[in-house]
Amino acid sequence: MKLSKENISRMDKILFKEYGIIYSDIRLELLDHLATELEQSDGSFDEVFEDFMRKRKDFIRETNLQLNRNSSRIGSKLLLKNILSIKFLLAYALMITVVYNLVSINGKEWFMEYFDILPIVVPAPISLVILYSMFSKKRKSYSMSFAGVTNTVLMTYLFIFIQIIRKVDAVYWIGIFSFYMTLSIMYYFIYFFSVKKLQNL
C-alpha cells in the first residue's frame, strides 16, 4: 500500500498530540520509519492503521525518549566543546584585558554601576528568538537543548555569581564576570553557526 498525504498528516498529528513528540526533527524521522513499515502491510490504511500504531507504541515512546536524552547530551557537549575552543579562550582573554583596564581606570564601583547585569542583558534578544521558536511547529531538538543548557549556565550568573562579584574585592571577580560576558556574546555565534549547522533541517 502507498500512503497518501492525508494518511501521513494523520500519523504526524498522532505523533504530536498523542505521543507528545514536539520536536519536528524527531517526528520527521519517526514518521518516515513508521510510514515505510506500514507500507509493507497488506490491506487498506484504514484497516491496518490503528492496530499498527498500537503495536508500535513502545518503539515510538522509547525512540522519542532516547532521542530527547541524546539531544540534551549533544547540546551540553556542544557548549562545552565551544567553551574549551581556542576562539572562546582568546575572546575570554581579551575580555579579561578590557574589563581589567576599565576597572583600573574607573574603579570597581563605576563598573558595577553600569555593567554588572550586562551578561544577562546581552543574550536577551537571542533568548527571545529561541523562546518564540519554542512555540513554533518547527522547533528542533538540538537547538532547544543547546539553548536550554546555555541559558541555565547564564542563569547561574544572575542567581549566584552576580552577588559574589558585587561583594568580593579580590581581583578574581574580573575572571568570573569576563567568563559570563564572553559566553553571552559567543552564544550568538555558537547558536547561529554550530547549532544551526548541526540542525540542518
Binding site: 524521522e29 518503539f59 525512540t63 532516547q66 532521542l67 541524546n70 539531544s71 549533544i74 548541526l198
Partner: peptide
Amino acid sequence: GALYPALHKLEA
C-alpha cells in the same frame, strides 16, 4: 530505539 540515537550521535 537504539538505532536513531546512534545515528544522531554519529552525525553530531
